[in-house]
């Protein structure tokens, strides 16, 4: 007699979504704007490509409202490469996400690089069959995105700048707070969970102008009590395993092999390179060099070797010269 369990095929479970993210570990995911670039990325050893209409540096220069890429471009890229294809949606824009899922995209980046769509909420990522990656600046943002169902977390950094400083800041913020959790008692963790739930509380307060009680629904179908309780569980797990419970990538400002390797040494599981490759003088050579730097991130001889003669990196921008309201990392909550 066959066990009933033998016949069931389960799609889109947390295990399947987080499993996909784990298969990207130790790899480089590259931003591409057409199938020619996607092909170069694949040939250079990228583990996946991120399909976009414009790389972040050009989004910055172009201005206007940045949205999900034209599905035609994404489809062309899907048809040409055998590695996974990811694409970005605006923060909170669950219909862009539904469209990308229908198209066959393998992972969605709910990204601050695009103009946010929802002033109150991020997407409820548990409702989707395909996995999501989300940016964070600190442990609170990471935990909220994980609670919402993200299968992968990445630093926000400051995309399109070719400047690593913000990515390092965000990685250090997450790591330091993770270490701090180690010595926290039960009551302190509960207080932290309450603090981390505040952004949902603030949204519902703005929407209803009512006092928020423990039983109040604050996000989708979830009550304030449930949110706090489940965030406590996530924090306990982070305290226990001393890392995020999902794969953690670096993104936002990576321009050189050494940039990629420093993020790996600081605890990232892999890297996203956005404008850094195709805005540089020799994309193919740089792409290969970054792939090798990530695979051998703790071997200085390899980093030195692959960094030779790569041509000019993207020019880069000092963060202080960017007007406050143009900082992409401030998007999302």
């Amino acid at each position: 007699m066959k066990n009933l369990d033998i016949t069931t095929l389960r799609h889109g479970t947390a295990l399947v979504k987080k499993g996909f993210a784990k298969m990207q570990k130790g790899g480089v995911i590259m931003d591409v704007i057409n199938y020619e670039q996607a092909k170069i990325a694949e040939e250079s050893g990228a583990v996946a490509v991120m399909a976009l209409e414009r790389v972040p540096a050009d989004i910055r220069a172009h201005g206007g409202v940045a949205k999900m890429a034209d599905p035609k471009i994404i489809q062309e890229i899907i048809d040409v490469v055998s590695i996974p294809v990811m694409a970005k949606v605006r923060i909170g824009h669950f219909v862009e996400a539904q469209a990308l899922e229908a198209l066959g995209v393998d992972m969605i980046d709910e990204s601050e690089v695009l103009t946010p769509a929802d002033p109150f909420y991020h997407v409820d990522k548990r409702l989707f069959t395909i996995p999501f990656v989300c940016g964070c600046r600190n442990l609170g943002e990471a935990v909220r995105r994980i609670w919402e169902g993200a299968a992968m977390i990445r630093t926000k950094g400051e995309a399109g700048t070719g400047n690593i400083i913000e990515a390092i800041r965000h990685q250090r913020m997450v790591t330091s707070m993770t270490q701090t959790l180690k010595d926290m008692e039960k009551t302190e963790i509960q207080a932290l969970a309450k603090e981390y739930s505040q952004s949902y509380v603030n949204s519902i307060k703005t929407l209803t102008n009512q006092k928020v009680k423990d039983t109040s629904i604050i996000f989708e179908k979830y009550s304030y009590n449930t949110v706090k309780k489940e965030i406590v569980d996530i924090l306990k797990e982070i305290k226990e395993i001393q890392r995020l419970p999902v794969v953690n990538f670096a993104a936002g400002g990576i321009a050189t092999p050494a940039d990629a390797a420093i993020m790996m040494q600081l605890g990232s599981d892999g890297v996203f390179v956005g404008s850094g490759i195709f805005k540089s003088e020799n994309p193919k050579k740089r792409a290969k060099a970054i792939v090798e730097a990530v695979a051998h991130y703790d071997e200085p001889e390899v980093i030195a070797e692959v960094s030779k003669d790569l041509g000019d990196a993207m020019p880069g921008i000092e963060i202080e010269t960017i007007p406050e309201e143009q900082l992409l990392q401030k998007r999302g909550w």
């Binding site: 066990n3 369990d5 033998i6 069931t8 095929l9 389960r10 799609h11 889109g12 479970t13 295990l15 399947v16 499993g19 996909f20 899907i78 996974p84 899922e101 066959g104 995209v105 393998d106 992972m107 069959t129 395909i130 996995p131």
Partner: peptide
């Protein structure tokens, strides 16, 4: 593609109990 990825219990030759595979 990833949409069609799944988990399922399978039977493996020589194993008395099903194996949960991803």
């Amino acid at each position: 593609r990833q949409k069609e990825s799944f988990e399922k219990s399978i039977e493996i030759k020589g194993f008395s109990k099903p194996y949960h595979a991803v």
